[in-house]
Write a protein that binds this DNA or RNA. Structure first.
Lengths: 136, 136
DNA sequence: ATTACTGCAAACGCTTTGCAAATAT
DNA sequence: ATATTTGCAAAGCGTTTGCAGTAAT
Protein backbone atom coordinates (compact mmCIF):
# COMPACT_ATOMS: atom_id res chain seq x y z
CA UNK A 1 0.00 0.00 0.00
CA UNK A 2 1.70 3.10 -1.20
CA UNK A 3 0.82 6.54 0.06
CA UNK A 4 -0.91 8.99 -2.22
CA UNK A 5 -0.46 12.66 -1.68
CA UNK A 6 -4.02 13.88 -1.74
CA UNK A 7 -4.98 17.50 -1.29
CA UNK A 8 -6.40 16.67 2.09
CA UNK A 9 -3.24 14.98 3.25
CA UNK A 10 -1.06 17.75 1.96
CA UNK A 11 -3.05 20.44 3.73
CA UNK A 12 -3.13 18.51 6.99
CA UNK A 13 0.63 18.11 6.84
CA UNK A 14 1.19 21.72 5.91
CA UNK A 15 -1.02 23.07 8.67
CA UNK A 16 0.59 20.88 11.29
CA UNK A 17 4.06 21.92 10.21
CA UNK A 18 3.44 25.60 9.81
CA UNK A 19 1.47 25.80 13.03
CA UNK A 20 4.37 24.21 14.92
CA UNK A 21 2.19 23.24 17.82
CA UNK A 22 1.07 19.93 19.17
CA UNK A 23 -2.47 19.97 17.90
CA UNK A 24 -5.26 17.55 18.60
CA UNK A 25 -7.20 16.08 15.70
CA UNK A 26 -10.12 18.42 16.19
CA UNK A 27 -7.97 21.51 16.63
CA UNK A 28 -6.33 20.64 13.35
CA UNK A 29 -9.71 19.98 11.80
CA UNK A 30 -10.86 23.47 12.74
CA UNK A 31 -7.90 25.06 10.99
CA UNK A 32 -8.00 22.80 7.96
CA UNK A 33 -11.73 23.30 7.49
CA UNK A 34 -11.07 26.95 6.74
CA UNK A 35 -8.87 26.00 3.82
CA UNK A 36 -10.98 23.05 2.69
CA UNK A 37 -14.51 23.42 4.03
CA UNK A 38 -15.82 20.03 2.90
CA UNK A 39 -13.11 17.93 4.56
CA UNK A 40 -14.39 15.49 7.14
CA UNK A 41 -13.11 14.94 10.64
CA UNK A 42 -12.72 11.25 9.84
CA UNK A 43 -10.28 12.14 7.10
CA UNK A 44 -8.24 14.16 9.54
CA UNK A 45 -8.12 11.27 11.98
CA UNK A 46 -7.24 8.79 9.27
CA UNK A 47 -4.47 10.92 7.86
CA UNK A 48 -2.91 11.70 11.19
CA UNK A 49 -2.77 8.00 11.89
CA UNK A 50 -1.33 7.20 8.47
CA UNK A 51 1.23 10.00 8.61
CA UNK A 52 2.46 9.00 12.03
CA UNK A 53 2.67 5.36 10.99
CA UNK A 54 4.77 6.53 8.07
CA UNK A 55 7.04 8.39 10.45
CA UNK A 56 6.26 11.75 8.89
CA UNK A 57 4.79 13.18 12.07
CA UNK A 58 4.86 12.20 15.73
CA UNK A 59 1.99 11.00 17.84
CA UNK A 60 1.76 12.03 21.47
CA UNK A 61 -0.35 9.95 23.75
CA UNK A 62 -0.09 11.83 26.95
CA UNK A 63 -1.60 10.61 30.14
CA UNK A 64 -5.18 9.82 29.55
CA UNK A 65 -6.12 12.75 27.46
CA UNK A 66 -6.61 13.51 23.81
CA UNK A 67 -3.90 12.53 21.43
CA UNK A 68 -1.77 15.28 20.02
CA UNK A 69 0.28 15.26 16.89
CA UNK A 70 3.80 16.52 16.57
CA UNK A 71 5.20 18.18 13.46
CA UNK A 72 8.56 16.82 14.58
CA UNK A 73 8.73 13.02 14.33
CA UNK A 74 12.23 12.76 15.83
CA UNK A 75 12.79 11.26 19.26
CA UNK A 76 12.48 13.88 21.94
CA UNK A 77 10.66 14.59 25.16
CA UNK A 78 7.77 16.86 25.94
CA UNK A 79 6.62 19.13 28.64
CA UNK A 80 2.97 19.88 29.11
CA UNK A 81 0.95 22.31 31.06
CA UNK A 82 -1.28 20.93 33.78
CA UNK A 83 -3.64 23.83 33.34
CA UNK A 84 -4.12 24.43 29.61
CA UNK A 85 -2.66 21.12 28.45
CA UNK A 86 -0.47 22.74 25.91
CA UNK A 87 2.58 20.74 24.97
CA UNK A 88 6.08 21.89 24.13
CA UNK A 89 9.12 20.04 22.97
CA UNK A 90 11.94 19.62 25.41
CA UNK A 91 15.54 20.38 24.45
CA UNK A 92 17.62 17.32 23.69
CA UNK A 93 20.28 18.06 26.22
CA UNK A 94 17.82 17.77 29.06
CA UNK A 95 20.01 15.91 31.49
CA UNK A 96 19.07 13.04 33.72
CA UNK A 97 16.89 11.64 31.02
CA UNK A 98 19.44 9.52 29.24
CA UNK A 99 19.05 6.41 31.36
CA UNK A 100 17.86 4.19 28.60
CA UNK A 101 20.45 2.02 30.30
CA UNK A 102 17.99 1.39 33.09
CA UNK A 103 18.44 -1.94 31.41
CA UNK A 104 16.42 -4.75 32.80
CA UNK A 105 14.09 -3.55 35.47
CA UNK A 106 12.07 -6.13 37.29
CA UNK A 107 12.71 -8.66 34.58
CA UNK A 108 11.25 -6.47 31.87
CA UNK A 109 13.26 -5.88 28.76
CA UNK A 110 13.13 -2.14 28.46
CA UNK A 111 12.40 -0.90 24.97
CA UNK A 112 11.94 2.74 25.74
CA UNK A 113 10.72 5.23 28.19
CA UNK A 114 8.68 8.32 28.35
CA UNK A 115 9.31 11.17 30.71
CA UNK A 116 6.48 13.55 31.18
CA UNK A 117 7.16 16.63 33.15
CA UNK A 118 4.12 18.38 34.45
CA UNK A 119 4.11 22.06 35.09
CA UNK A 120 2.41 25.31 34.40
CA UNK A 121 3.33 27.16 31.26
CA UNK A 122 4.32 30.84 31.25
CA UNK A 123 0.96 31.95 29.85
CA UNK A 124 -1.02 30.17 32.53
CA UNK A 125 1.27 31.44 35.23
CA UNK A 126 0.53 34.94 34.04
CA UNK A 127 -3.20 34.22 34.02
CA UNK A 128 -3.05 32.87 37.57
CA UNK A 129 -1.26 36.00 38.69
CA UNK A 130 -4.02 38.06 37.19
CA UNK A 131 -6.75 35.99 38.82
CA UNK A 132 -5.09 36.25 42.19
CA UNK A 133 -5.14 40.01 41.86
CA UNK A 134 -8.77 39.93 40.72
CA UNK A 135 -9.81 37.97 43.82
CA UNK A 136 -8.33 40.47 46.25
CA UNK B 1 -18.19 17.10 52.19
CA UNK B 2 -17.05 14.24 54.31
CA UNK B 3 -16.57 10.74 53.01
CA UNK B 4 -18.97 8.02 54.01
CA UNK B 5 -17.76 4.49 54.12
CA UNK B 6 -20.47 2.70 52.22
CA UNK B 7 -20.40 -1.02 51.57
CA UNK B 8 -19.69 -0.34 47.93
CA UNK B 9 -16.74 1.88 48.70
CA UNK B 10 -15.36 -0.53 51.21
CA UNK B 11 -15.49 -3.46 48.84
CA UNK B 12 -13.93 -1.50 46.00
CA UNK B 13 -11.10 -0.49 48.26
CA UNK B 14 -10.65 -3.98 49.62
CA UNK B 15 -10.60 -5.62 46.21
CA UNK B 16 -8.11 -3.12 44.84
CA UNK B 17 -5.83 -3.58 47.81
CA UNK B 18 -6.00 -7.33 48.04
CA UNK B 19 -5.65 -7.77 44.32
CA UNK B 20 -2.48 -5.69 44.35
CA UNK B 21 -2.64 -5.00 40.67
CA UNK B 22 -3.27 -1.89 38.66
CA UNK B 23 -6.80 -2.57 37.62
CA UNK B 24 -9.00 -0.64 35.25
CA UNK B 25 -12.46 0.43 36.37
CA UNK B 26 -14.16 -2.37 34.48
CA UNK B 27 -11.72 -5.04 35.61
CA UNK B 28 -12.44 -3.98 39.14
CA UNK B 29 -16.14 -3.93 38.40
CA UNK B 30 -16.00 -7.55 37.24
CA UNK B 31 -14.43 -8.65 40.51
CA UNK B 32 -16.61 -6.52 42.74
CA UNK B 33 -19.78 -7.63 40.98
CA UNK B 34 -19.15 -11.14 42.25
CA UNK B 35 -19.25 -9.91 45.82
CA UNK B 36 -22.03 -7.40 45.28
CA UNK B 37 -24.01 -8.30 42.18
CA UNK B 38 -26.21 -5.20 42.09
CA UNK B 39 -23.41 -2.64 42.15
CA UNK B 40 -23.29 -0.39 39.14
CA UNK B 41 -20.31 0.45 36.99
CA UNK B 42 -21.00 4.15 37.57
CA UNK B 43 -20.54 3.60 41.30
CA UNK B 44 -17.17 2.01 40.65
CA UNK B 45 -16.10 4.94 38.51
CA UNK B 46 -17.34 7.46 41.03
CA UNK B 47 -15.64 5.79 43.94
CA UNK B 48 -12.34 5.35 42.19
CA UNK B 49 -12.37 9.04 41.41
CA UNK B 50 -13.33 9.97 44.95
CA UNK B 51 -10.81 7.64 46.55
CA UNK B 52 -7.98 8.90 44.41
CA UNK B 53 -8.96 12.50 45.07
CA UNK B 54 -8.84 11.64 48.76
CA UNK B 55 -5.35 10.22 48.30
CA UNK B 56 -6.39 6.75 49.38
CA UNK B 57 -5.48 5.18 46.06
CA UNK B 58 -3.46 6.25 43.07
CA UNK B 59 -4.66 7.00 39.58
CA UNK B 60 -2.58 6.03 36.56
CA UNK B 61 -3.32 7.77 33.34
CA UNK B 62 -1.08 6.17 30.81
CA UNK B 63 -0.76 7.26 27.26
CA UNK B 64 -4.13 7.43 25.69
CA UNK B 65 -5.41 4.24 27.17
CA UNK B 66 -7.73 3.26 29.96
CA UNK B 67 -7.09 4.60 33.39
CA UNK B 68 -5.76 2.21 35.96
CA UNK B 69 -5.95 2.49 39.71
CA UNK B 70 -3.15 1.83 42.12
CA UNK B 71 -3.60 0.35 45.56
CA UNK B 72 -0.49 2.29 46.54
CA UNK B 73 -1.10 6.05 46.56
CA UNK B 74 2.49 6.95 47.42
CA UNK B 75 4.71 8.68 44.92
CA UNK B 76 6.46 6.17 42.75
CA UNK B 77 7.01 5.30 39.15
CA UNK B 78 5.58 2.61 36.98
CA UNK B 79 6.69 0.27 34.33
CA UNK B 80 4.25 -1.10 31.85
CA UNK B 81 4.32 -3.77 29.26
CA UNK B 82 3.97 -2.68 25.67
CA UNK B 83 2.41 -6.01 24.82
CA UNK B 84 -0.12 -6.87 27.52
CA UNK B 85 -0.33 -3.40 29.07
CA UNK B 86 0.14 -4.73 32.53
CA UNK B 87 1.58 -2.23 34.98
CA UNK B 88 4.01 -2.73 37.83
CA UNK B 89 5.39 -0.41 40.41
CA UNK B 90 8.99 0.61 40.13
CA UNK B 91 11.38 0.56 43.08
CA UNK B 92 11.98 3.93 44.67
CA UNK B 93 15.69 3.87 44.32
CA UNK B 94 15.46 3.90 40.57
CA UNK B 95 18.28 6.36 39.96
CA UNK B 96 18.39 9.14 37.48
CA UNK B 97 14.79 9.92 38.16
CA UNK B 98 15.27 12.42 40.92
CA UNK B 99 15.64 15.49 38.74
CA UNK B 100 12.60 17.28 39.98
CA UNK B 101 15.18 20.05 39.93
CA UNK B 102 14.93 20.17 36.21
CA UNK B 103 13.62 23.37 37.61
CA UNK B 104 12.29 25.90 35.29
CA UNK B 105 12.43 24.48 31.84
CA UNK B 106 11.24 26.76 29.12
CA UNK B 107 9.63 29.07 31.60
CA UNK B 108 7.33 26.44 33.04
CA UNK B 109 7.06 26.04 36.76
CA UNK B 110 7.53 22.33 37.19
CA UNK B 111 5.05 20.73 39.54
CA UNK B 112 5.90 17.12 38.87
CA UNK B 113 6.94 14.66 36.30
CA UNK B 114 6.00 11.29 35.06
CA UNK B 115 8.43 8.74 33.80
CA UNK B 116 6.96 5.94 31.80
CA UNK B 117 9.27 3.15 30.95
CA UNK B 118 8.09 0.92 28.17
CA UNK B 119 9.17 -2.66 28.00
CA UNK B 120 8.08 -6.21 27.73
CA UNK B 121 7.23 -8.03 30.90
CA UNK B 122 8.69 -11.43 31.78
CA UNK B 123 5.49 -13.28 30.92
CA UNK B 124 5.23 -11.74 27.48
CA UNK B 125 8.90 -12.36 26.82
CA UNK B 126 8.31 -16.01 27.56
CA UNK B 127 5.29 -16.05 25.26
CA UNK B 128 7.32 -14.47 22.46
CA UNK B 129 10.01 -17.10 22.87
CA UNK B 130 7.37 -19.76 22.52
CA UNK B 131 5.86 -18.16 19.43
CA UNK B 132 9.26 -17.89 17.81
CA UNK B 133 9.76 -21.59 18.31
CA UNK B 134 6.27 -22.29 17.01
CA UNK B 135 6.99 -20.41 13.80
CA UNK B 136 10.06 -22.45 12.98
C1' DA C 1 -7.54 0.65 -14.81
C1' DT C 2 -6.56 0.02 -10.52
C1' DT C 3 -6.63 0.85 -5.78
C1' DA C 4 -6.06 4.33 -2.20
C1' DC C 5 -8.71 7.70 -0.48
C1' DT C 6 -12.81 10.53 0.65
C1' DG C 7 -17.27 12.14 3.05
C1' DC C 8 -20.99 10.74 5.51
C1' DA C 9 -23.33 8.65 9.16
C1' DA C 10 -23.47 5.38 12.36
C1' DA C 11 -21.09 2.83 15.87
C1' DC C 12 -17.51 2.40 19.14
C1' DG C 13 -15.25 2.22 24.01
C1' DC C 14 -14.58 4.49 28.09
C1' DT C 15 -16.38 7.71 31.19
C1' DT C 16 -19.57 11.05 33.20
C1' DT C 17 -24.09 12.84 34.57
C1' DG C 18 -29.19 13.75 35.94
C1' DC C 19 -32.41 11.88 38.61
C1' DA C 20 -35.24 9.90 42.24
C1' DA C 21 -34.65 6.45 45.77
C1' DA C 22 -31.65 4.56 49.46
C1' DT C 23 -28.44 4.94 53.19
C1' DA C 24 -24.59 6.62 56.37
C1' DT C 25 -23.80 9.96 59.53
C1' DA D 1 -32.72 14.99 59.77
C1' DT D 2 -29.77 15.90 56.28
C1' DA D 3 -26.47 15.25 53.11
C1' DT D 4 -23.94 11.89 50.57
C1' DT D 5 -24.23 8.03 47.81
C1' DT D 6 -26.49 4.68 44.96
C1' DG D 7 -28.48 2.36 40.58
C1' DC D 8 -30.23 3.16 36.35
C1' DA D 9 -30.37 4.95 31.91
C1' DA D 10 -28.98 8.28 28.93
C1' DA D 11 -25.60 11.27 27.21
C1' DG D 12 -20.88 12.56 26.62
C1' DC D 13 -16.41 12.57 24.36
C1' DG D 14 -12.81 11.26 21.32
C1' DT D 15 -12.20 8.05 17.94
C1' DT D 16 -13.02 4.36 14.48
C1' DT D 17 -15.46 2.02 10.77
C1' DG D 18 -18.62 0.44 6.75
C1' DC D 19 -19.98 2.02 2.71
C1' DA D 20 -20.52 3.71 -1.97
C1' DG D 21 -18.54 7.24 -4.59
C1' DT D 22 -14.13 9.97 -5.99
C1' DA D 23 -9.58 10.73 -7.33
C1' DA D 24 -4.39 9.75 -7.51
C1' DT D 25 -1.31 6.79 -9.53
Amino acid sequence: MQLRMTNQREIILRVLRSNKQHLTADELYDVVKKLMPRISLATVYRNLEILSDAGMIGKLEISGRQKRFDYDPSDHHHIYCAVCHRVDNLPDNCQGVKQKDLGRVRGYSVTGYRLEIVGICPDCQALEEKEKKGDE
